[in-house]
Amino acid sequence: MKKSFLFISCEEAKLICDKSQYDEATTWEIVKLRIRLFYCGITKTYSRKNVKLSETIETSKVQCLKAEERDKLQSTLDKELTKQQQN
């Protein structure tokens, strides 16, 4: 099927919606998403939930460890575990 210039599939709309949560969607992609949002209930629901998730994470100020920080913790614990097993 010929790919439409202006009208996108639901899957493509969801992908653009995901990208836009990280400011990685282009202006043209956002235009196409907005057009789809006019007439597609599934995209609308997905978009609403997606935005809500982004806002929740933003509000929570949730943080996590970087890989190297986690590795450091693991190696400290491993050393102690080895010591404990030897005793």
Binding site: Q63, L73, E80, Q84
Partner: peptide, 30 residues
Amino acid sequence: SDYLFNYTITRVSDREVAQDLISETFLAGL
């Protein structure tokens, strides 16, 4: 570790201190 880190950082606001406290927690747990 991530859960504990998030729990700690909201209370001490310092990444290094938070990591030290988690490390101490694991060692005390052992």
